[in-house]
């Protein structure tokens, strides 16, 4: 009798721990939301703001980076842009595969300061998918974005960085 009870308790603890592991996912989400940890931008969102909202102008800096061993040329049309919050904007980025081989690249976005990331909405972005370019091919893709007018007043500038990684090998697995 005592043993059955023990087994039952142990099973309960096991399931409890298992459940706790899953409970951590929303818990950490809340934690990161409160502290603003992790300056990553999530998938495409479509938002529009009505004109009555309090808008202001801000400077957005675009940073294009190549990770090690990524020989592509990767540039934005201009390095900076002054924008109004709550309005749609567009910036063109040009990718060129300068090698003699076809390659696949993945651009990883990062917003700085990190706590500004959740106010930076991209409605269209090449970072949502991988780019395949044949040898010598070049392509220009726009990023469409809108900045939430509720962004804290003390942030007067945002930097949107893209780091280009070579994922040709990983692509070959698929």
């Amino acid at each position: 009798m005592g043993q059955t009870k023990n087994v039952f308790r142990l099973l309960l603890i096991t399931f409890g721990m298992f459940g706790f592991g899953f409970a951590l996912v929303p818990l950490y989400d809340i934690f990161c939301d409160i502290t603003g940890l992790n300056g990553k931008v999530t998938g495409p969102t479509y938002t529009s703001y009505n004109e009555e909202l309090d808008t202001r102008s801000m400077k957005v800096t675009f940073v294009t980076l190549n990770n090690k061993n990524m020989p592509w040329s990767f540039k934005s049309d201009s390095p900076q842009m002054t924008i109004e919050t709550g309005k749609d904007y567009l910036m063109n980025f040009t990718f060129t595969n300068t090698t003699a081989e076809p390659m696949v690249a993945q651009a990883i976005p990062s917003v700085s300061p990190g706590r500004g990331a959740k106010y930076f909405h991209k409605t269209e972005c090449f970072c949502f998918e991988q780019q395949y370019l044949a040898a010598g091919e070049s392509i220009t893709i726009p990023v469409k974005f809108i900045i939430d007018p509720e962004i804290p007043r003390d942030i007067s500038t945002l930097a949107l960085g893209y780091t280009l990684f070579d994922v040709t090998e990983q692509f070959a697995y698929k």
Binding site: G39, V63, N67, K68, I108, S110, V111, S112, P113, A159, G161, T163, F165
Partner: peptide
């Protein structure tokens, strides 16, 4: 300085 991230 972290690869893939921009710090200020």
């Amino acid at each position: 300085a972290i690869p893939g991230f921009v710090n200020t």
